[in-house]
Amino acid sequence: MEGRANKPKRRLRRGAVHAATEAELEQLGVDAGTSAPAATALRLAMEMDSASDAGGAATAARELRQSMAVVRAMAPPTEQGDKIDELTRRREGRRGA
């Protein structure tokens, strides 16, 4: 562990993976400030954006995928409707036009 103490801290970047993860969290309605899995996902996204080798990126990608699966499962349900709802909206739109 002595070698780790002398190693300079690595700066994490907020790149494309971080932006995409942040956008998905927003779409899901999950706040990273109140959800540990969401905060973990953002950190892993930064790890991916900052990875200097393929092995590090692959490890972070695998963990990010697992974290986002947990986040998606915990996210509040979204009201999507089915085909009947869509047809009803179209019909109402035609009637109103």
Results as ranks from 00 to 15, higher is better:
residue 1 M to V: 11
residue 2 E to W: 10
residue 4 R to N: 08
residue 4 R to A: 10
residue 5 A to Y: 09
residue 7 K to S: 06
residue 7 K to P: 00
residue 7 K to M: 11
residue 9 K to S: 08
residue 9 K to N: 10
residue 10 R to Y: 09
residue 11 R to E: 12
residue 12 L to P: 04
residue 13 R to I: 13
residue 14 R to M: 06
residue 15 G to D: 05
residue 15 G to T: 06
residue 15 G to N: 00
residue 15 G to Q: 04
residue 16 A to T: 12
residue 16 A to Y: 07
residue 17 V to D: 03
residue 20 A to E: 15
residue 21 T to K: 04
residue 21 T to Y: 02
residue 21 T to Q: 07
residue 22 E to H: 13
residue 23 A to Y: 01
residue 23 A to W: 04
residue 23 A to G: 09
residue 23 A to D: 07
residue 24 E to A: 01
residue 25 L to I: 06
residue 25 L to Y: 06
residue 26 E to H: 14
residue 26 E to Q: 15
residue 26 E to F: 15
residue 27 Q to I: 10
residue 27 Q to C: 10
residue 28 L to S: 03
residue 28 L to H: 04
residue 29 G to N: 08
residue 29 G to E: 00
residue 29 G to W: 02
residue 30 V to D: 04
residue 30 V to H: 09
residue 31 D to L: 00
residue 31 D to F: 04
residue 31 D to E: 06
residue 33 G to E: 04
residue 34 T to K: 09
residue 34 T to E: 11
residue 35 S to G: 03
residue 35 S to P: 03
residue 35 S to C: 08
residue 35 S to W: 04
residue 36 A to F: 13
residue 36 A to Q: 15
residue 37 P to T: 08
residue 37 P to C: 03
residue 38 A to N: 03
residue 39 A to V: 00
residue 39 A to L: 02
residue 40 T to A: 05
residue 40 T to P: 00
residue 41 A to D: 05
residue 42 L to G: 02
residue 42 L to F: 00
residue 43 R to N: 02
residue 43 R to C: 02
residue 43 R to A: 05
residue 43 R to M: 04
residue 44 L to Y: 02
residue 44 L to D: 05
residue 44 L to T: 03
residue 45 A to E: 10
residue 45 A to H: 04
residue 45 A to K: 05
residue 45 A to Q: 08
residue 47 E to I: 06
residue 48 M to P: 06
residue 48 M to L: 12
residue 49 D to L: 10
residue 49 D to A: 05
residue 50 S to D: 02
residue 50 S to K: 09
residue 53 D to F: 02
residue 54 A to P: 01
residue 54 A to Q: 12
residue 57 A to Q: 12
residue 57 A to H: 14
residue 58 A to E: 10
residue 59 T to P: 01
residue 59 T to V: 13
residue 59 T to A: 11
residue 61 A to D: 07
residue 62 R to W: 11
residue 62 R to K: 14
residue 63 E to Y: 14
residue 63 E to N: 15
residue 64 L to C: 00
residue 64 L to Y: 01
residue 65 R to Q: 08
residue 65 R to F: 06
residue 65 R to P: 09
residue 67 S to Q: 10
residue 67 S to L: 09
residue 68 M to A: 00
residue 68 M to K: 01
residue 68 M to N: 06
residue 69 A to E: 13
residue 69 A to S: 11
residue 70 V to P: 02
residue 71 V to N: 04
residue 71 V to L: 05
residue 72 R to Q: 06
residue 72 R to N: 01
residue 72 R to H: 02
residue 75 A to Y: 01
residue 75 A to Q: 03
residue 76 P to W: 06
residue 76 P to H: 05
residue 79 E to I: 14
residue 79 E to Q: 15
residue 79 E to W: 13
residue 80 Q to I: 13
residue 80 Q to W: 11
residue 81 G to A: 06
residue 82 D to H: 01
residue 82 D to L: 06
residue 82 D to M: 06
residue 83 K to R: 14
residue 84 I to M: 10
residue 86 E to N: 09
residue 86 E to I: 12
residue 87 L to V: 03
residue 88 T to W: 14
residue 89 R to L: 02
residue 91 R to K: 15
residue 92 E to M: 12
residue 92 E to G: 01
residue 93 G to E: 10
residue 93 G to Q: 09
residue 94 R to V: 08
residue 95 R to E: 13
residue 95 R to M: 11
residue 95 R to N: 09
residue 96 G to N: 15
